[in-house]
Design a binder for these strands. Structure first.
Lengths: 239, 239
DNA sequence: CGCCGGTTTGATGTTTGTCAACGCGAGTGG
DNA sequence: CCACTCGCGTTGACAAACATCAAACCGGCG
């Protein structure tokens, strides 16, 4: 088999329960396979798309790990999310036909390219697919609202606890451990996402470790007391 | 003409340049008129939908002013946005068939009800409408990212300056003054949205007034030096 | 008139940012 | 192979920003 013609088939993808194909019929999935003609490799540190780039496609993460970043004219910049296998990148580009944030691979990654005009055409044919696209966009909106809540109403400890629980939960949904993880991002990137400085991230990790809630060594984190983390998140206003 | 049969027509709506109908053909707009069968009045303080309510429709604000709020189990709550005429509410409900936030009218309001299943059906027929729906959802995602940037990387002064500029710009797009506005929300609601306490909001208003940038008297605000506000927003990291 | 929600302002405390030093480990070139 | 650098992480001392608590005020309304 020619290396350049590896068939990229949603129907045989091990992410199909997490990604676009959820709930599609075999017929629909076959059509989807046609749509997704290409994959793209993205090396660690490279950008999948940058703010300002023309919008043409959505991307489904097949492997690897991404961050999305917005940067403003005045040099401010902020990580707006971390994406792992099965998650969709590029939704920000639709409204203005260009991307408003950049997506950077935090480790060598591979994405499925979903040309958006074709996706729109296909979802005019299949209402299941159409609805699923709507659900994906709505999910992103709800996720963003969760981040707003985090940024607007939580203290550093609570933010980091919520972040760790969210990460490990998503990793667990992909078959990884629910207590161990290796962070793919730096303290600075975590801080940027959580609206705090890298020193505060580091100190908070250390405090959690001192309290016996987690074990940290650089990027490696082991969650010893998940319910203690959850309690920290919930300590906002005990009724 | 019977009072109960006031025709709700996008085609004759003075918001059509801001709302759903942007760029639709007359045929498409006629179909859209059929879809939007009902309007709904919402009294000041009443909820259009609450978190947990079954999702059936999107809502286009015709008049009045809303806030959207999320509240968590542990008693935390946060304003995630303020919506005015021509803006769309309810996108959060699609992903789980129930709303994840509540929409509360801050003054007597009226909305057009857009049954979502019908909107999906119609957008399978008209690709213009379909794309417009996608654009509306993408716009919301981009807006949310802007709020994340604000919450994650700005100080109180910068947040409030950005908030005022954003409000007055949206009001101006609706034909209101670009220098005067009447706030429809309390200091506490502003604070909740901006991730700060009501006292800090109040103090920051006072400071802006002392500096001659704005004039404030309770809910009334007059922007005297818009470029000074803009400079405050941009003072993040002057290159 | 007196109440009440919303707002302003002051005094004080806590959290987080800032600045700076140091450690650790991976890669690189002498 | 070792010394060096470089990026990343940790930790400490101090400062700034913001929250908290408390009092007073203002304007509308019964």
């Amino acid at each position: 088999m020619d290396l350049h013609s590896i068939k990229v088939a949603c129907s045989s993808c091990n992410l199909r329960e997490l990604c676009i194909p959820v709930g599609l019929s075999t017929d629909e999935m076959a059509q989807l396979d046609d749509l997704i003609s290409t994959r793209r490799r993205v090396r660690r540190g490279a950008t999948l798309f940058a703010a300002g780039d023309a919008f043409t496609s959505l991307y489904a993460v097949r492997s690897g790990f991404f961050k999305t970043v917005i940067n403003t004219a005045d040099g401010r910049d902020q990580v707006t999310g971390f994406q792992m296998a099965g998650e969709i990148l590029g939704l920000d580009g639709i409204v203005q036909d260009k991307h408003s944030c950049s997506a950077v691979a935090l480790e060598d990654a591979e994405v499925c390219v979903l040309p958006f005009d074709k996706l729109e055409a296909l979802s005019r044919e299949f209402s299941t697919l159409q609805h699923h696209v709507h659900r994906i966009m709505s999910r992103e909106i709800v996720r963003d609202q969760g981040v707003m809540l985090l940024l607007g109403s939580m203290r550093a400890e609570e933010r980091l606890a919520a972040f760790l629980l969210n990460l490990v939960q998503r990793l667990h949904a992909r078959g990884f451990s629910r207590s161990e993880l290796v962070l793919r991002m730096t303290r600075e990137e975590i801080g940027s996402y959580l609206g705090m400085k890298l020193e505060t991230v580091s100190r908070t990790f250390s405090r959690f470790q001192d309290e016996g809630i987690i074990e940290v060594r650089q990027r490696y984190v082991r969650i010893l007391e998940p319910q203690a983390l959850q309690a920290i998140v919930n300590q906002g206003e005990p009724l």
